[in-house]
Amino acid sequence: MPLAHHDSYADADIRRILKNVKTIAMVGASPNWNRPSYFAMKYLQHKGFRVIPVNPGAVGQEILGEKVVAGLKDIDVPVDMVDVFRNSEAAGPIADEAIAIGAKVLWMQLGVRNDEAAVRAEAAGLTVIMNRCPKIEYGRLCGELGWHGFNSGVISSKRRKG
């Protein structure tokens, strides 16, 4: 049964996640500079996040200055958030690994949704976001998405900080 609380997310919750997270493990990060995951990683690095690429097919390479690791358990620093750049089915085992390494947030990319995985992660105390892109959400909430004509849904009479 689809989880109704994952059909939409409150801006305040997304804001809090993006404010508290420092280190992101990006599962499915591509070394190809023209792939969506590379775009997202580059943007998130620029916004001050540390992004660790996870991709068994690219172990030993570097992406944007970070060494690629094979799996989440190979990361030797605390991971705040696991960002799933894989399909919905693959998100299941990745969720279990995220629980195992003690990540606080499980984030599945735009088009990726696995409700069973979300139930397990939430039971283990993780915050779960599905079918969203952290780059798009960051840009939306800080006003940058509006630069490109998108409906951010944000209304505020306060000066925006850069």
Binding site: W33, N34, Y38, F39, K42, Y43, H46, G139, E144, L145, W147, H148
Partner: peptide, 10 residues
Amino acid sequence: SLFNLQTFGY
């Protein structure tokens, strides 16, 4: 990054 559409900006 801008020319590649990798980031938001003018």
